[in-house]
Amino acid sequence: MRLDVVAVSVSGRAANPSMGALPAEPYRLTSEGRPFLWPTFGGIVYNVSVGDSAFGWTGDCIHPSVSIAHPDGNKNRGLNVFACVGNRATVASGAARGAQGVVTGKSGRFSDQVIVHFDDETRRKMAVDDLIVVRAEGVGLALPDHPEVAIKSIAPALFDALPKKVEDGVLKIGVVATVPPHMVGAGAGLTSEGGSLHMQSTDRAELAKHGLDALRLGDVVAIADTDSRYNHGYLRGAMSIGIVGQTDGPRAGYGPGMTVVMTAPAGQLGAFHAPETNIATLLELTA
């Protein structure tokens, strides 16, 4: 237990999938210019969970399990910034009241939603607009032995559970694969305190070349030459660590989405291959 990290409540409601009136909704365009109409992020998703494949779904950036948001924009921003992957969540209204869940990711270009895992039985009982309260803990977490490593959006207990080692003063995290910088897509240039950073996935051969074609939701990955201390951006020698939180989609630049949980600018953070590193196992998430 880290006594200096503050735990505070934030809340949101199970979010209904939404569509803007313009431009050209409900249809979107694939990377090859073909219109499509598939389920997109938001809602209570009954058949996609952390641990499942991040590819192959007839959907566009699907969030596993339950997406939550606060109807007030400023309060929703507080929810998205302070909620951390690994935080515990509780259903506070409706037929599933009292059920426990775990935050598994964040999403949205402008930090729209927080993704929470609940088991199958709980999902069947839940309804859109049910209130979920998150015990938000993790913002402000720091590593005195590695002051150049910025910790973001990760609960202390999940950080402790990650496979890690220190070599020549460099903190190294066990990851399933490494995303090269030329495959970083949507989210670059935006804030790293909320929302997600996507990988490019339209070039399937390149995806397979880097061992990214078999990623699962919840996999821990490294993102090379990416500095996410303030905004996500290219910086040679930097590294970020992310958790795959959303599925692939047919749009250019919107491959699986990642929640960045730590970053460093100049070689202070590294990675090693640990192919089974997935938060479904680390957090003992049940179906």
Rank of each mutant, 00 (worst) to 15 (best):
S228A: 12
M258G: 06
S65I: 02
N47I: 13
G174Y: 08
H146P: 06
A188I: 15
L235C: 13
R88H: 15
C61Y: 00
D225C: 04
A89Q: 02
L143E: 15
G169T: 12
V81A: 03
V45S: 01
D225H: 13
V91S: 06
V149C: 09
P17Y: 02
T277I: 08
A274T: 07
G105S: 05
T277C: 09
T263H: 00
N231P: 09
H146G: 07
V244M: 01
V139N: 11
V45H: 03
L283T: 03
G253D: 04
F110Q: 14
G211I: 13
L212R: 10
V102T: 07
V102H: 00
I62F: 00
A83C: 14
A266L: 08
L22R: 13
A264S: 12
W57K: 04
L79W: 00
R2D: 14
N80Q: 14
A252M: 08
D213G: 06
E137T: 13
V114S: 03
A264N: 06
V8K: 14
I243T: 00
G94M: 00
L162H: 04
A186G: 13
G51R: 07
N76W: 00
V179E: 01
I132G: 02
G211S: 07
K165F: 06
T247E: 01
G78N: 09
P256W: 09
H63N: 13
G242D: 08
D203T: 08
R28D: 14
Q268F: 12
V50C: 03
G194Y: 12
T122S: 09
D72S: 11
H273W: 12
K75A: 15
G101F: 04
A271K: 07
G174L: 05
V149D: 01
G108R: 02
L282S: 02
N76L: 06
V133N: 10
V170G: 00
V81S: 04
S53D: 06
Q268C: 08
G73N: 13
G33Q: 10
G138L: 07
K125V: 05
G194M: 11
A92D: 09
T247D: 01
G270Y: 06
V8P: 02
A266W: 11
S31P: 07
D213Y: 05
F41E: 11
E167D: 15
V8D: 11
P144S: 08
H117L: 07
R216W: 03
N87F: 02
T259V: 03
A96G: 12
M126C: 04
E148I: 08
M183K: 06
P180H: 04
D160S: 12
G257N: 03
V175N: 03
H146E: 02
P64M: 03
S49K: 09
A177L: 12
F110E: 15
V103C: 02
R2L: 15
D160W: 12
W38F: 12
P71K: 06
A264D: 05
S65C: 08
G194I: 12
V50R: 00
V261D: 01
Y230K: 11
